[in-house]
């Protein structure tokens, strides 16, 4: 094995190095500031070493900006001898400008992996994960309602009062099933039928009620209001 050939540093900072990878003949070209190879950086003004000729490398007459053909597994130790190569560095994406990796569906840090960002903890337990380029919602105990719980709904005929039950998977309420209104609201039923007054009676008597008449004035008539702690999804 030949001794290493010293390479003089140069004031020209732009160095092109080419790796010929296997038999595919793929030339992997790096353009870097002082980057010698495989992520090893040679500071400006210091000497670096190139493998000897038997490693398939041309000698000191190699000019800067000339491609250097190196075997992919060539490695030189401090004593100038070829040593076993370290594990391959992470793939580097040609033409990629490394920036901090963020959740955006892009390989920002140019390591060949997309969105390898840490999860964000949620206050109620679980984490938000980077999924399809954006952070997910926090996990929820249920999607719509707690399974088996009920809320009062209103219908436009007969008793004007009904009940919806939350399905076993917590994903939806059942259809509104007619039911007799409680005694305390029967006079309202008889006088006003399906009306804001009936919904108010529902609220006043401690039920969880569909806000069909938007009594809270937020424009949402599909929500439930009142005593809904046991009904709503919560962590």
């Amino acid at each position: 094995m030949l001794p290493p050939t010293p390479r003089q540093s140069t004031t020209r900072r732009r160095i092109h190095v080419a790796f010929q990878v296997g038999t595919l003949g793929v030339v992997f070209s790096l353009t870097a500031c002082g980057l010698a190879r495989g992520g090893q950086s040679i500071p400006e003004g210091e000497e670096g070493f190139l493998p000897g000729e038997d490693a398939g490398v041309v000698g000191p007459d190699v000019g800067i900006d000339a491609p250097l053909i190196l075997p992919p597994d060539a490695e030189v130790g401090e004593d100038g001898q070829l040593v076993d190569p370290p594990p391959p560095p992470p793939p580097i994406v040609p033409g990629c400008e490394p920036t901090e990796e963020v959740c955006n569906g892009v390989d920002d840090d140019c390591n060949g992996e997309v969105d390898e960002v840490a999860p964000l903890p949620c206050p109620g337990g679980g984490d938000r994960y980077c999924v399809a380029g954006r952070f997910s919602e926090c996990p929820s105990r249920c999607e719509t309602c707690m399974p088996g719980t009920e809320r009062v709904c209103f219908i436009s005929y007969c008793t004007y009062w009904g009940v919806q039950t939350c399905a076993a998977d917590g994903r939806a309420f059942s259809a509104c099933r007619e039911k007799d209104a409680p005694q305390v609201c029967r006079s309202v039923v008889n006088e006003d039928g399906n009306s804001p007054e009936l919904e108010q009676c529902c609220l006043d008597n401690g039920y969880c009620c569909v806000d069909e008449f938007d009594l809270d004035g937020d424009g949402n008539k599909r929500e439930m209001i009142g005593q809904c702690d046991e009904v709503e999804c919560r962590n």
Binding site: R128, Y129, V131, R134, F135, S136, E137, P139
Partner: peptide, 17 residues
């Protein structure tokens, strides 16, 4: 862990576990 990333209630918002 599976997420729904597109659908009528997801839209362009956050994926839903």
């Amino acid at each position: 862990v599976i997420f729904q990333t597109s659908g009528p209630t997801v839209g362009s918002g956050a994926p839903e576990p």
